[in-house]
């Protein structure tokens, strides 16, 4: 059994045993239901763009709650000592944990399948756009999860991990706002860094290599930082 698979299955098992996962899923789905209804009531358009737009902001708040315990809890429980004295690499630990929490997120996302179903049954929505929206939303969430996993490796206090995560993810959001009030190269740089700039085309049915690359880079970058950070803590 590979180290990555072992860590992945263990982490998914613990996520599914945790009441917190269900609370997060319930909050996400309840707010999602509200956004779905609100957009339909206001626009009468058979589209999920309003739903995904609003839910992307909810992600900023729920992702750190999902990820805060990923490493901080291992430190606090002393199980870090088991993982780090076993023949698995830090890279396998980090990637295994990331894939597990991404699987949970994908599962929660799968539960929203009712919204497109309602649209299909009652109207004639543009299906490819719905599919690209889901893809974009998953990539956005996965990138946020990588950021949250990184902040969890900074501390053995889960709350500190979560607050740091909120901070970093809010920054992603505010970069977007700042881009609106500057011009020139700076505006281009800020827009290029903004997670929402790269997410928005997906909700209009557009998949570009640049946007996909952006999310994959954020994921790879923060997983790398998490791995480096664990390595550094050990040498400290």
């Amino acid at each position: 059994m590979s180290g990555l698979g072992t860590i992945y299955r263990k982490e998914l098992r613990i996520l599914l045993a945790s009441p917190l996962s269900y609370v997060v899923a319930a909050v996400f789905l309840a707010l999602g239901g509200y956004f779905f209804w609100l957009f339909l009531a206001n626009t009468a358009l058979a589209s999920l763009s309003g739903y995904f737009g609003n839910s992307s902001i909810v992600l900023v708040f729920i992702v750190p709650v999902l990820t805060m315990r990923l490493w901080a809890e291992e430190e606090a429980r002393g199980t870090a000592e088991l993982l780090l004295t076993s023949p698995v690499s830090l890279g396998q630990v980090v990637v295994g944990k990331f894939l597990a929490v991404a699987t949970l997120f994908a599962g929660i996302l799968l539960l929203t399948v009712g919204y497109p179903l309602v649209l299909i049954l009652r109207s004639d929505p543009h299906l490819p756009t719905i599919l690209t929206s889901y893809l974009g939303f998953f990539l956005l969430g996965a990138a946020f999860l990588a950021v949250g996993l990184f902040t969890s490796t900074l501390t053995h206090h889960q709350v500190i991990a979560a607050v740091t995560g909120f901070g970093l993810l809010l920054l992603f959001w505010f970069i977007d706002l700042a881009a609106g009030s500057v011009t020139g190269t700076l505006r281009q740089v800020l827009l290029a860094l903004s997670a929402f700039t790269h997410f928005e085309p997906f909700t209009r049915g557009l998949i570009s290599a640049a946007d996909v690359t952006y999310f994959l880079s954020v994921i790879a970058g923060f997983l790398f930082l998490a791995e480096r950070n664990l390595e550094r803590r050990l040498w400290g």
């Binding site: 263990k10 945790s18 429980r77 002393g78 199980t79 000592e81 088991l82 993982l83 004295t85």
Partner: peptide
């Protein structure tokens, strides 16, 4: 290795 506090997952 048995660490000072046993590395267990209570769940």
């Amino acid at each position: 290795y048995l660490p000072e506090s046993p590395p267990l997952y209570p769940e």
